[in-house]
Simulated assay, not measured.
Amino acid sequence: MATLHSLLDNDFYKFTMQYAVIKLFPRAQARYQFINRGKHEFPAGFGNKLREAINQMAGLQLTAEEKSFFAKTCPYIDPTYFDFLQGYSYDPQEVLIEQHGSSLAVHIQGYWYRTILWEVPILSLICELYYEMTGLRRNDDAEVADIVRRKMDKYDELDITIADFGTRRRHSYAVHDLVIHTLKNHPSSTFIGTSNVHLAMKYHTKPIGTHAHEWFMFHAAKYGYKMANLLGLEHWSDVYRGDLGIALSDTYTTDVFFKQFDKKLSKLFDGVRHDSGDPIEFAEKTIAHYRSGGIDPLSKTIIFSDGLDYKKVEKIALFCQGKIGHSFGIGTDFTNDVGLPRMNIVLKMTETLPEEGEWTPVIKLSDEPMKHTGEPEEIDMAIKYLQIEDHE
């Protein structure tokens, strides 16, 4: 039976965003919705099994050992946050699950500072339950570990650094645990950490991440689309004062982002993260942006994290070499390369209620139009308002 093993079995950026939300927007509320991009068909009873697993999450609590690890790892976060996290518990009543035939619906609603932690573990539970209930047999542990080792041997030759970003669409906890164990024990310095805080603690490696699209989506709802990136990054820097300095660039397309990523922010942040669209085109735009501000691109870093495999990583690394710093966050190609079809599912914020005002729909305008999320009317309005051309 799929289950979570720790409150920290989640992506690092969920906790860093939660801390920022508590400090700046403690009364904001949010709604999230499951999106079945891959049109997967769920077996009978799946919704009930998912409900059981989510109900069990209410019993998860931060242990004293976990609290000590997290606080020691993140000295830039106030100790009051770790006290809060020690008292935090998931409230399953915030999650509505419905199944009609083979179709699954999941909706989440509550205070943003609470509901922000649901997305990643629910997606990982959906994946694990799907493979359990459909009876699909994966490669055995020796094969999975061998696949990881062979990939790492090839990555070592590129002289790059990589991290695991594969929690949300992993095959299972057991596979994820095996992958991190294998990566940690690989005889090179290529592997530098994981987005999963629980596994970072278990394997004495670094938890990696900063923020996600929902941070900027909320800012757009509260302050408007033209201020979303600017104020999102200003507020981030107000909270973290220079730490966690990788800026996510594609919530409202890269072109719009760079218009708002002014010289102050370009100097303050260590780099940017690429998560959609052509990676080489993105690298070219990023290099040009830094050069136009008199900033040496080699002093900055791009974190590439969009559906990576070896072929894509090799192409990107060869292009970026000697031009700009680069590193890679690899997701399902590590945690769900087990001889089975991979799931294509997401769970996104759909609406937010800031401290004042009313429920406001939120959207994402990816550099890849097929990855837009939100109401079509709102997407069309934002495209026109932001004067985004050729992005229908």
Rank of each mutant, 00 (worst) to 15 (best):
P341G: 07
P341I: 09
P341M: 10
P341V: 09
R342N: 00
R342H: 00
R342Q: 03
M343F: 02
M343W: 05
M343P: 02
M343V: 07
M343T: 08
N344L: 06
N344G: 00
N344P: 00
N344I: 03
I345Y: 01
I345H: 02
V346N: 02
V346R: 00
V346S: 02
V346W: 00
V346Y: 01
V346E: 01
L347N: 09
L347F: 11
L347W: 02
K348P: 08
M349G: 11
M349H: 09
M349D: 08
M349S: 12
M349A: 14
M349V: 14
T350S: 12
T350R: 04
E351I: 05
E351A: 13
T352K: 06
T352Q: 06
T352E: 09
T352S: 12
T352L: 06
L353F: 13
L353Q: 14
L353D: 08
P354T: 06
E355T: 07
E355V: 02
E355L: 03
E356S: 09
E356P: 00
G357D: 10
G357W: 08
W359L: 03
W359M: 04
W359P: 05
T360E: 13
T360N: 10
P361R: 01
P361H: 02
P361Y: 03
P361F: 02
P361M: 03
V362C: 14
I363F: 04
K364Q: 11
K364T: 12
K364M: 11
L365A: 10
L365N: 08
L365F: 11
L365V: 07
S366Q: 03
S366V: 03
D367N: 15
D367A: 15
D367V: 15
D367G: 15
E368D: 15
E368A: 14
P369C: 10
P369A: 08
P369H: 07
P369W: 10
M370E: 13
M370A: 14
M370Y: 09
K371E: 13
K371P: 05
H372M: 12
H372R: 12
H372F: 15
T373Q: 06
T373M: 02
G374C: 01
G374M: 01
G374E: 01
G374H: 01
E375L: 09
E375I: 04
E375M: 05
E375P: 04
E375R: 06
E375W: 04
E375Q: 09
P376V: 11
P376W: 11
E377D: 05
E377P: 00
E377M: 00
E378Q: 10
E378K: 09
I379C: 11
I379H: 07
I379N: 07
D380H: 15
D380Y: 14
D380A: 15
D380P: 09
D380E: 15
D380L: 14
M381R: 14
M381V: 06
M381N: 13
M381K: 14
M381L: 12
A382C: 15
A382D: 09
A382K: 14
A382I: 13
A382L: 15
